[in-house]
Design a protein around this nucleic acid. Structure first.
Lengths: 245, 245
DNA sequence: CGGGATCCCAAGCGATACTG
DNA sequence: CAGTATCGCTTGGGATCCCG
């Protein structure tokens, strides 16, 4: 256990150090989920369905030793990011954005989790495009999981709906804002991907409440552009590329 | 070999996809080095001193299959990023920045490579702080490796000096700019770290050419803030470990 | 001689069972 | 529910060997 640091990369470099600390399999995904809020051992396990329990246990130990996470003293089995760990947000966001270009279709057995969606929303959020928008509350149901995204004053707050979240420090009592607009809609995973990448017509989105107009604005505020040329990907035998020039 | 994709994370998520493609040990460091320019097999091996040759070979194959890199047709053993791979730059930059906060002292046997320095400079570059600065050429010697950083019009170009780089597409013939300022200086690895994090007085830098004033401007244009609270961390920066079985 | 493939061994990983 | 213990399989590390 916890021997990763022993296998350094032999380089005095920032990227190498980062990978030594959070480069282990699963580690970054644990950080991602904790970025949304404090979580219990069982929550993490549920959000990372294929992680073996001993690996989760090892990673949590290693991440604590690296100063990335700490236990929540008041909650049995609770973990949260330290300030040092929260500083990994740009890394997670960058991972999220790039991966979006290669998402493809959901593979057999792949699930969507509320925490990963929440981070995807954060990664896609464009505060400049949100400037001037009226306070809005979006409720999303994507592939069976639900979350609320609140946009006020060009800032975003996302929270998963349902069980699995520790009581949050509570963002200043009850939200006093009266939302001028709100919308609630339902998407499949692939539709959500296409909505964020701009290739799904907002008019086709299934609304539970609100106006389609709100969806149009949603697509403007939340966007991840696909990277240059699509991933030709898994080219069986060699060649096939290239294009561009 | 090349079985990484088989071990997916079971999630339909951008971050998970990214890690499936470039999350393997060493993969991101290969991408980092290629971000500086095309490299040969042997260059990569030299820049990643602890990588076993079979692993390097495997990673190069996997990265090709993922569409992240391709071979340079004209150069034996040459590799370069595709446009898709170049889009990983924000990821690498984020890794570099975070790792900087935890760099600590160089561990026994750790080396500094020209490519990692070049990426560190890119990660540290603040184009806003460079706006209005006169065209400047910096020559850096850090812990035995050398590189040139050229700042013109708030844009940066870095290139390692010496062998190990493939002939680059050449950025438009000879640089026509007459540099109004230039400076050349020598730093240890730790000094370089401190210079970028703002805790080293530029006045103490050993100059080979130019004015100290240029170093002061360098420190303003190239900066990575240390993240909030230092990593308390057990971790004796890469050493220390670890009894453990 | 540089580029790359092939060994073997150790360490990490994954699945299951088990304990506080 | 929150982990620890154990075991077999897979991967990475290091040295060696082969090819052009």
């Amino acid at each position: 256990m916890a021997t990763r640091a022993a296998r350094g990369f032999g380089q005095y470099s920032g990227a190498a150090r980062t990978l030594e600390r959070v480069g282990d399999r699963w580690a970054m995904l644990i950080v991602r989920d904790l970025l949304v809020g404090a979580r219990r051992y069982g929550d993490l396990k549920a959000g990372l369905p294929r992680i073996p329990t001993n690996i989760l246990s090892d990673r949590l130990k290693e991440l604590q030793e690296s100063g990335v996470i700490r236990r929540v003293p008041t909650v049995r089995g609770g973990y949260e990011l330290t300030a040092f760990g929260r500083a990994l947000e740009p890394v997670v966001v960058a991972l999220e954005r790039w991966g979006w270009s290669a998402l493809g279709e959901p593979a057999e057995g792949e699930i969507v989790t509320a925490d990963s969606l929440a981070v995807a929303l954060r990664a896609a959020f464009r505060s400049d495009a949100a400037a001037g928008a009226p306070p809005t509350e979006y409720v999303l149901h994507v592939s069976g999981v639900s979350l609320v995204a609140i946009v006020v004053n060009a800032t975003l707050e996302v929270s998963p709906i349902g069980p699995g979240a520790l009581p949050q420090p509570q963002r200043g009592g009850a939200p006093e804002v009266a939302f001028e607009v709100s919308a609630e809609f339902v998407l499949s995973a692939a539709e959500f991907r296409d909505l964020l990448s701009g290739s799904l017509d907002p008019a086709g989105v299934q609304l539970l409440a609100g106006e389609h107009d709100a969806v149009v604005r949603f697509a403007r505020m939340f966007h991840i552009d696909p990277v240059g040329p699509a991933p030709d990907a898994v080219v069986g035998s060699g060649a096939a590329e290239v294009s561009v020039a």
